[in-house]
Design a protein around this nucleic acid. Structure first.
Lengths: 238, 238
DNA sequence: CTTACTCATATTGTATGACCAGATGACGCA
DNA sequence: TGCGTCATCTGGTCATACAATATGAGTAAG
């Protein structure tokens, strides 16, 4: 996934972005000059300049004319940028990432579900139900992932709010990438399907309070599934 | 604010980004070639290429080799990117933007406040209280804005969650920019200060349920203040 | 010895021109 | 009409050059 660098610039963005997020170049420090990087990677300066511009666009660095390019403080990084997120996953301990991710989901997804119950169009409702039905038909936990994410995405899209929809899209992609990266699918609870159904039904009935409540329960359980997997993994290593 | 294009690339990013977000180049359409833009703006190709890379990094366009650069679907845009947000504000009807923004805040800020009540460090608590005290000392509504935003920022930072902190930072900056752009400060309600105090106290007492509840009330009121201003403005124009 | 100035250097900003390779679409041929 | 060929367009990459200024070392003045 996303490991198909189509050109030199993307390759270098990948390399340098990961280095920065990993802390190889500490916050506040100046990056090596364009000329240096040009020699290290054997690419021309225009390429390096394109790379720098991309990293600037993602908030990782800032460039001052005739001075150099410095790493910006973490709070300026575009944490929800797909690339930054991916680099974060690759360089952070997995559990920390999962914790932050689920904290975020639990903060905003119940409210998003409530809003979706109010704002969803007929097409949105169909999409949500379809996603749920696809979950019912999944055989293995890995088959379950895509419809599951589609279910959640359909809900946040149904809020009709571009910010919420975007946040959801980004987080779910990150979650998916994280699962694929570790090849460890969460151990799905038996109650998972009924609880998704509860959320689905609440939204279809446009019961926003119920949507929020059931979504919260769903997320708590989903989080436990992840913790469970992580726990198994740790004991395996001992 | 942010109207200080330091170099050609940033100028052009500003121009083209705004054009795209405004819909001058429809979604799915191909942008004019690099050569064309080079002639329209009288800049060299490397500059145009840097601009394109930046717009790609923000999710606005995608570039396929030997084919062209096309505008991506809106759901791929990095809606929380400061630049994209600014262009959105400039091209969207203001009320739509405010609505979306407050919907988002109301979805995630009560939960963030609750999390902050649990996770805040001692420094965070001091910062939150200081921000509140600065609000008390403000004389005019425009003096109130900065401490107000700092108050909310301090709270989301106190969650210790990089995603939530980043979302907050971005949205508050957008809100600030929107206010400054229209020069219309919200008509602050008399109960605004006590209600901020309620949130502050709840977090200081580490009462997460109380923090969520008081924050929700605060936001509902704050939203009304904005609607009020917008209403006044409309009647003025008639 | 301290301060102020000068200047070479380093570094980013910009432009030009060139070549490559692949996607595209028009054209001509069967 | 249908197919294959090919000129053209477009982005990808490179080499090179010059501009402009922040920086810091070195120098001169006090």
């Amino acid at each position: 996934m996303s490991l198909k660098p189509r050109n030199l610039t993307e390759q270098l963005v990948e390399t340098l972005g990961l280095r920065i997020v990993s802390g190889d170049y500490p916050v506040g420090d100046r990056l090596p000059s364009e000329q240096y990087f040009g020699e290290e990677f054997d690419v021309s300066r225009p390429i390096l300049r394109e790379v720098t511009k991309v990293l600037m666009a993602k908030g990782l660095v800032e460039s001052r004319s005739r001075v150099g390019t410095t790493v910006r403080a973490r709070e300026n990084w575009s944490m929800l940028d797909p690339d930054v997120l991916r680099w974060t996953i690759q360089s952070l301990p997995e559990q920390d990432f999962i914790d932050s991710l689920f904290d975020t989901r639990m903060v905003y997804e119940p409210g998003a579900a409530a809003l979706a119950a109010r704002n969803a169009s007929e097409e949105d409702l169909v999409r949500i139900r379809s996603a749920y039905e696809a979950m019912e038909e999944a055989d293995t936990t890995s088959d379950l992932m895509d419809p599951d994410l589609e279910f959640h995405q359909a809900i946040v899209d149904a809020t009709q709010n571009p910010f919420l929809a975007h946040i959801g899209r980004t987080l779910y992609n990150a979650l998916k990438y994280s699962i694929e990266l570790t090849s460890r699918h969460p151990h799905t609870h038996d109650l998972s399907l009924p609880r998704h159904k509860a959320v689905c039904d609440a939204i279809l009935k446009r019961d926003s309070a119920g949507a929020a409540r059931t979504m919260q329960i769903l997320l708590e359980e989903s989080r436990r599934d992840f913790v469970h997997v992580a726990g198994i993994d740790e004991t395996d290593h001992q």
